[in-house]
């Protein structure tokens, strides 16, 4: 069942087009930086972007930071919103359930497929970022990198922290996927489900900037998204990273439970 869903997700051209489009922006930014040599000053623009001119190995992180606020969540919302509602709209859901795929199994398989999409997308963005970064900018594999705090990092430290950052971004996107999947079980329209998940994120981002909303700010799903930058401080500032992981864990747990409860008791009339 899981194999079937993975084949469906990665067998459709749309998935790869999405991933390709997602990579277009960081590549474009890299080319512009290379041509103009005008990097944003430290502290401005997306994180890490100021540093890439001197060390191309930081570009995977810059690439993730570029797609994280908007493109990546949109892609994840679309794919996760499509998971169940897309089958419902196409009419294939009734055949899957009559096959019988089993409702819980189907939901788990959908979740795994969405998860795989998230991981593959984040890894591809990072990999393309690394490729572009090392091709266009100076790579200093021997010297390692510089932490956000200003101290220097060995290449090993940099690699490990980059992998952790990729993992952290993937977990953040899991929260989006959980919203998408939950809405996907509520409606038969994949568009509505994706928009629902995006609406949550837009609301969250908006409230985050609002002082009046500061009491609930720690619980907003997008609150700790950029905490992966903290992994590059020296020493690593774990506080927000851990809180971010815990928060996403709670959202994912609650939303998946709700999705399961709704999907296993619902009349499939599509």
């Amino acid at each position: 069942m899981i194999g079937v869903e993975l084949r469906k997700t990665f067998g459709r051209p749309r998935t790869w087009v999405t991933i390709a489009v997602l990579n277009a922006l960081p590549v474009l930014v890299a080319v512009l930086l290379r041509l103009t040599d005008l990097a944003p000053r430290p502290g401005e623009g997306p994180p890490f972007l100021s540093a890439v001119l001197t060390n191309g190995q930081l570009y995977p992180l810059a690439a993730l930071a570029i797609v994280l606020p908007l493109f990546l969540p949109i892609a994840v919302a679309v794919v996760s919103g499509d998971a169940v509602a897309g089958e419902a709209q196409a009419g294939t859901l009734r055949y899957l359930l009559a096959r019988p795929a089993g409702r819980t199994r189907l939901l788990v398989a959908k979740l795994v497929a969405v998860l795989a999409f998230v991981v593959v997308t984040v890894v591809v963005v990072a990999a393309v970022g690394y490729l572009v970064g090392t091709l266009l900018f100076d790579a200093r594999p021997v010297a390692g990198g510089t932490s956000v705090s200003g101290t220097s990092l060995t290449p090993e430290e940099l690699a490990v922290r980059t992998l952790m950052a990729i993992g952290y971004v993937a977990v953040s996107m899991l929260g989006v996927a959980a919203f998408g999947l939950f809405f996907s079980t509520l409606t038969d329209s994949p568009l509505a489900a994706a928009l629902g998940a995006l609406a949550v994120l837009v609301t969250s981002s908006l409230l985050f900037t609002l002082d009046a909303a500061s009491p609930i700010a720690p619980y907003l799903p997008t609150r700790y998204w950029l905490a992966f930058v903290d992994l590059f401080r020296d020493p690593v500032l774990w506080r927000d990273v851990v809180r971010g992981l815990a928060l996403q864990g709670v959202y994912v747990g609650v939303l998946l439970a709700a999705a399961w409860a709704n999907f296993t008791t619902k009349d499939v009339t599509s």
Partner: peptide
């Protein structure tokens, strides 16, 4: 079963 018309993945 054939339920209320067929449904398939069009790209396959």
């Amino acid at each position: 079963a054939l339920i209320e018309g067929p449904a398939h993945h069009r790209h396959l």
